[in-house]
């Protein structure tokens, strides 16, 4: 059984804003019936202020799809359309205290329904360029389509490359067979053979200074969130792909420390476009790296 957070369960058992919405003037229908998840998001938008005065949903899907839909409607009610469009799938997942990696696509579907509903209100057509494949890396929720596209776009040739570019395979390593298989297929297309002994291509170039600035910036952006919860984070050092931080206050040693570090690592990976490990230092730091913590 999935390891759903209490919040996911609560929103599933008692979904908010479920059912049709009379007078909706923005409707987004997204999802895939073959995958078993589809969602209709209905918005009532005040034309003068462009503010969402009400939001309802109808969902064909699993527990986390229904919970994500419910969370989405709660998040966006009262927002302007532009504010709502800034809501990311991670925001939806965060609102629910996280989703299992296999279920992150439920939050992606929520964000897409929102884009579709806003486009519908504005009289635009929304097209989705995102295609989802079978989940390969369960630690970081990376699917086969993303891996395949990334290999093609960047001419990648090794598992390490794939990890550097997509994060896939950077955790427990159980999916390396699957990644090798995809590599073999794509390399065959360009007339090459997968060579397990090949050296990884160097990570995308970013000067040292630019890289450290980016790390600082990203951590700065996350601080207010941590401070709101009575904690704080400081950058201590950068050592190759290890980013040493110290957690303070409520964050330090708390049960959520692994989750917090996982979140920081996720943002840093996104910002840098390479795989990094966030390592806590200080009295309460765990001995193991945060790649393991993210799996936990």
């Amino acid at each position: 059984m999935w390891d759903y957070s209490e919040k996911v369960k609560e929103h599933f058992y008692n979904p908010r804003n479920a059912g049709p919405l009379d007078g909706a003037n923005g409707i987004g229908d997204v999802g895939s019936i073959s995958c078993g998840d589809a969602l209709r998001l209905m918005l009532k938008v005040d034309p003068d202020s462009e503010r969402i005065t009400d939001a309802h949903f109808q969902t064909f899907g699993c527990g986390s799809a229904i919970a994500s839909s419910s969370a989405l409607t709660e998040i966006i009610k009262g927002m302007t359309l532009d504010e709502a469009l800034a809501v990311s799938n991670q925001d939806i997942a965060d609102y629910l205290d996280g989703l299992p990696p296999e279920k992150m696509h439920c939050s992606v579907m929520g964000r897409e329904a929102l884009q579709a509903a806003v486009a519908n209100y504005r009289g635009e057509t929304w097209t989705d360029e995102h295609e989802e494949g079978a989940l390969v890396c369960k630690c970081f929720a990376i699917d086969a389509v993303l891996i395949e596209d990334t290999i093609r776009a960047n001419n990648l040739g090794t598992v390490e490359d794939v990890t550097n570019y997509t994060k896939a395979g950077g955790g427990c390593a159980a999916c390396h067979e699957g990644i090798e298989e995809i590599l073999g297929r794509v390399l065959a297309e360009r007339g090459e053979r997968f060579d397990p002994t090949a050296k990884a291509t160097p990570a995308p170039a970013m000067g040292n200074l630019a890289r450290i600035r980016k790390i600082e910036q990203t951590i700065e952006q996350m601080r207010p969130t941590l401070q709101r919860d009575g904690g704080d984070i400081d950058l201590i050092d950068v050592d190759g792909n290890r980013i040493l931080v110290s957690l303070k206050g409520a964050c330090s040693g708390c049960q959520m420390e692994a989750v917090t570090l996982g979140g920081v690592q996720q943002k840093l990976i996104e910002a840098l476009g390479e795989f990094v490990k966030v390592v806590p230092v200080g009295a309460h730091a765990h001995a193991h790296g945060s790649a393991c913590a993210t799996e936990a």
């Binding site: 997204v30 895939s32 019936i33 589809a38 579907m109 897409e112 995102h130």
Partner: peptide, 18 residues
Amino acid sequence: AGDRPLAEPEKAFAPSYA
């Protein structure tokens, strides 16, 4: 809808693939 499926349910709700 109510106590039965929509008439022609697969046409009434045809989500764009996401």
